[in-house]
Computed example of a mutant assay.
Amino acid sequence: MIPKTMHAMLLTGHGGVEKLQYSQTTPTPEPGPGEVLVRVTATAKNNTDRKAREGLYPTKDKGEVTSFQMGGSPTLTFPRIQGADVVGHVAAVGAGVDEARIGERGLLDFNLYADERRDINLTPDYYGHGADGGFAEYIAVPSDQFHHVDNSDLADAELAAMGMCSYQTALHMLTSARVKAGERILVTGASGGVGTALIQLCRIMGATPYALSQADKAEALLALGAEAVLDRSSMGSFTERAKKVTGGHPFDAVMDLAGGEMTNAFIDAMIFNMKDRADYPRLSIAGASAGNLSEIMWTRVYLYQVQIFGVSHGTREEAEQLIAWIRGGQLRPVLHAAFPLSKLHEAERYFVDRNSNYLGKIVIVPDAQWEEHGAPFALSASPEAN
């Protein structure tokens, strides 16, 4: 029986973790026409949860406290339930949806699409921002965006770690930059959710990924598929270090999640020998963990014909391709740990202060589902994953 109220973590405004309030009496959503009601078993945490909470998406004034507004007006209203990468089981269906779906396990395509176009997404928004997300016991979502994944070798928490927020962003970075088989690709921020997704996706596409990360994460990143790992603790002589691992060749493209002062070094590592290239230097950027402002010379950009792609989310086609790869076992989860929903404050602090052992995703599990879907992946229970 579906309860009338549920446990949920409510974001009540921009600010610190104190703006996240645990509610035990939030109304359970009802599925509308074409929707399914999902009993949530795991939701991966993403950096965008923190950035949206803190209002760190300025587009005009660098000090502006704001959120996604690409559709022309803000869609984040309070209170809001965050959490984009939702895994769960269909508990009920709305009008027009086959009741045979009840009981299915699935993974949510997290996008709030503005229209039915399959190959473009010009005003990206997402569950957990413009509509309530998965940091709750139930969520109502479009049936066609809740993709059935019945792989028995994947636990619900592991499937959540392969959620669309990271993997679809990663794939869109690669497709935007026309990454091809045989190319050498630098992946920055390689130990996070998007970074680990990029390494795997490069291998599927036949490209060779090189990771930029902390030196103590090199072994795990090499095991995941990185050709080599460059230490990000010192960016001095970066091009020379890059030449050593590529055999003297420039990177064909950079998948950047860092920004800041590193941008020039990434460009340098693509343009030092233009005669050795088969395509233009390409920089895809989908994050700014090292700083939201970069100072670059535009003459270097246009004389060397550097192509820059800003990436946020992806398309329906890319989501469906990822689901096919997950079902086919071509992608594997990189799950760091699980936390109960009631301890989301603790998870947020751990995420910000994560140490050198951190690799992959943190997953949030409703307390009622904890013993089955969360406890096996708790920090103390899963040293091999931590």
Rank of each mutant, 00 (worst) to 15 (best):
14 H>W: 09
3 P>C: 07
149 V>R: 08
225 G>E: 01
189 G>W: 01
82 Q>W: 05
187 V>H: 01
328 G>R: 02
84 A>D: 15
134 G>K: 08
127 Y>T: 05
27 P>L: 03
76 L>K: 01
66 T>M: 02
282 R>I: 11
268 D>F: 06
343 K>W: 07
75 T>P: 05
86 V>F: 13
187 V>Y: 01
191 S>T: 11
281 P>S: 10
29 P>M: 08
142 P>D: 11
376 P>R: 12
177 A>L: 07
70 M>R: 15
220 A>P: 09
179 V>P: 04
333 P>G: 00
183 E>Q: 14
225 G>K: 00
385 A>L: 15
61 D>P: 02
90 V>E: 03
151 N>G: 10
53 R>S: 04
168 Q>W: 10
338 A>M: 12
67 S>W: 15
286 A>S: 10
215 A>Y: 05
381 A>I: 04
132 D>M: 03
104 E>N: 13
40 V>N: 06
107 L>I: 07
285 I>V: 09
221 L>P: 00
249 H>Y: 09
86 V>Q: 09
115 D>T: 13
243 K>H: 06
345 H>G: 07
167 Y>S: 07
366 P>G: 05
225 G>C: 05
80 R>D: 06
101 R>Q: 15
216 D>F: 09
343 K>H: 14
333 P>F: 02
35 E>I: 05
135 F>K: 08
313 H>Q: 15
81 I>L: 05
277 R>E: 00
92 A>T: 08
100 A>Q: 06
163 G>M: 06
209 P>R: 04
371 E>H: 12
136 A>I: 11
290 A>R: 07
344 L>W: 02
319 A>H: 11
362 I>N: 11
63 G>W: 11
331 L>K: 15
